[in-house]
């Protein structure tokens, strides 16, 4: 980017990637997300230049165990937002669909688009599949930056579908203002739900595949479990909703609930609080990465050699760290 001529008076000047994304150029957006994923050294500067254009999108995370129908629900939700619902006009939709990277080969099969074919051909929709690339917690390290890229490109709603992890979806709660946890009948008993801590991160709980046997039982046990929580006070009361994503049943109501949650975040000040928390967590992580990198480049000590010593019980990890920081 820096090599391009920047004089605004020059009509022959190529528009920068930043300008193309701001103008809604889909190819430029796709290129930026790839650069983010590849740790391209120019990506941070491009994102930095786009930062002031971000913060406008309604960002929604959708998580839940594998096979609960997340992809189909995301596709149906995107359709509902594109059509508009009773109380809200149509909105453009960006989708980030994260699937797991194979721990053995480093490769991945990203199959979420299979369920999203009804959205094909709509210029108001942009779908990007991302591999988790070894990151735990259901997201890729690049997800957060990719959300900002979609936001800067002007997508009004951004849906993030996480890897079906099941028990540790904390990442998504940290990164998105509204979290939907998807359950379906017959995926584990209620103790599973308690154990996973999903009730704590869900802003909206969805029982998908509501036309299947056992859906009412799942619905009722989730309602009962939420009742057990108690003491949430005057804040948001997590609704439990039934959907059948494959037919679209209940999906408009879910889209409306997402709008309601966004209004709650805005009016209660909770949204700003979460945004600050998110920004702080993000800064901590960046700082940690940069400090580590600076330490590594100082080249004072050999990490691998120290690891050998610890493994050989020649010194403890505690002593090793003290030594490495000297």
């Amino acid at each position: 980017m820096r090599r391009e001529r920047r004089s605004p008076g020059n009509p022959l000047r190529m528009p920068t990637l930043t300008e193309r994304i701001a103008a809604g150029d889909r190819r430029a957006l796709a290129t930026l997300i790839s650069r983010i994923e590849k740790h391209d050294p120019e990506a941070p500067a491009i994102l930095g230049a786009l930062h002031e254009r971000t913060g406008r999108a309604m960002v929604v995370g959708i998580t839940g165990a594998p096979g609960t129908g997340k992809s189909t629900l995301v596709a149906a939700l995107a359709g509902a937002f594109r059509r508009g619902t009773a109380g809200h006009p149509p909105r453009t939709v960006g989708i980030l669909a994260v699937d797991p990277t194979s721990p053995f080969s480093g490769g991945a099969i990203l199959g979420d688009r299979i369920r999203m074919r009804d959205l094909a051909g709509d210029e108001g929709v942009f779908i990007r599949s991302m591999a988790s690339r070894g990151r735990l917690g259901g997201l890729s390290h690049a997800t957060d930056s990719a959300v900002r890229a979609l936001d800067a490109a002007g997508f009004e709603t951004i849906l993030i579908e996480t890897v079906g992890v099941g028990q540790d979806e904390v990442d998504i709660a940290r990164q998105t203002p509204t979290v939907i946890v998807v359950e379906s009948p017959g995926t584990g008993d209620d103790i599973q739900a308690l154990k996973a801590g999903i009730l704590e991160i869900a802003d909206i709980l969805v029982v998908n595949k509501a036309d299947m046997p056992g859906a009412d039982t799942t619905f009722e046990s989730l309602c009962a479990m939420l009742g057990l929580g108690g003491g949430e006070g005057d804040g948001w009361k997590t609704p439990v909703m039934k959907t059948t994503a494959a037919t679209g049943e209940g999906v408009d109501a879910l889209a409306e609930a997402i709008h309601r949650h966004r209004a709650y975040l805005r009016e209660s000040g909770e949204g700003r609080r979460r945004e600050r928390e998110r920004a702080e967590a993000d800064l901590r992580e960046r700082l940690r990465e940069r400090l580590f990198e600076r330490w590594r480049q100082s080249g004072r000590m050999d990490l691998a050699e120290m690891a050998r010593k610890v493994a050989a019980r020649e010194c403890s990890p505690e002593e090793a760290v003290e030594e490495l920081l000297k």
Partner: peptide, 30 residues
């Protein structure tokens, strides 16, 4: 599956794709 096992990221789009759907997906997925 073979490409995944060779360490590539494979976006699998499924059956009955039109040329338009394929080109559009190729653009979005870069």
């Amino acid at each position: 599956r073979a490409l995944r096992d060779a360490g590539m990221e494979v976006i699998y789009t499924g059956l009955r794709q039109t040329p338009e759907m394929i080109a559009d997906a190729a653009l979005q997925e870069d």
